[in-house]
Simulated scan of single mutants.
Amino acid sequence: MTSIELREALRQMLAVLEEERQALAGLDLDAIVGAANDKNRLCGTLDAGVDGEIDEECRGMLDAAKRLNEVNRQVRNLIAANVSARLNALTGSPQLYRAGPRYGYAGGRA
């Protein structure tokens, strides 16, 4: 993969991660699944590797994609913990899944 192809794939990944964030915020399941499929496809493209060195622009986009993906992962986990707590409250059963204190600082890192 050339540097130009890598740059384009990273731009697409950043756009998909932003779409995923919006889908998570709106709890839009179809959009969340679509974003997951797009991320998987783009990961396959990125797995092809790069011919030569990665330039600074690509490094910046890689870093931004990693941060966005981490924030989205934390949001998914918080949503799952919230759903679990609500289901447990409705059924009166003990909580099987607990989001630990590490999720308390998710907003501070972004």
Rank of each mutant, 00 (worst) to 15 (best):
I54P: 00
P101H: 14
E56W: 00
V50P: 01
N69H: 11
P94Q: 03
A80M: 09
D28G: 02
I32L: 10
M13I: 09
L24M: 12
N77Q: 07
K39G: 06
S3V: 04
V33F: 08
A25N: 09
L87Y: 14
V16F: 03
V16H: 03
Q95L: 15
E70D: 09
D38M: 14
L6R: 08
A65K: 04
G34I: 07
G107A: 13
E70F: 08
L42V: 09
A65M: 03
G108P: 02
G26Q: 05
S93E: 15
K39E: 06
M13G: 03
I4L: 07
L24P: 14
R86H: 11
L90I: 04
A80Y: 06
K66H: 10
E8V: 05
L68W: 13
E18S: 11
L24E: 11
E56Y: 01
G52V: 02
L90G: 02
I79H: 03
R76I: 05
E5M: 04
A80T: 08
I54Q: 00
R41W: 15
G60D: 04
R73P: 02
R59T: 10
N40D: 14
E19M: 08
G44R: 00
Q12V: 02
L27E: 14
A99H: 08
G44V: 00
L29E: 11
G44P: 02
L68T: 08
L46C: 01
R59C: 09
L42M: 09
K66F: 11
E19H: 13
L78I: 01
L90P: 00
E5I: 01
G107M: 12
A35K: 06
R73T: 05
N82M: 07
L46W: 02
E70I: 04
N69C: 06
A106T: 04
N37D: 15
T2D: 12
R67D: 14
L62V: 13
G52P: 02
R102C: 08
R59M: 10
R7K: 10
Q12Y: 02
I4H: 08
N69K: 06
C43Y: 06
L87S: 13
Q74P: 00
A31D: 12
A65I: 04
N88L: 00
G52Q: 04
Y103L: 12
E57K: 06
A23W: 07
D63V: 10
E20H: 09
E5D: 07
R98S: 13
N88C: 11
L96C: 00
S93T: 13
A81V: 07
V50W: 01
L6C: 03
L27S: 14
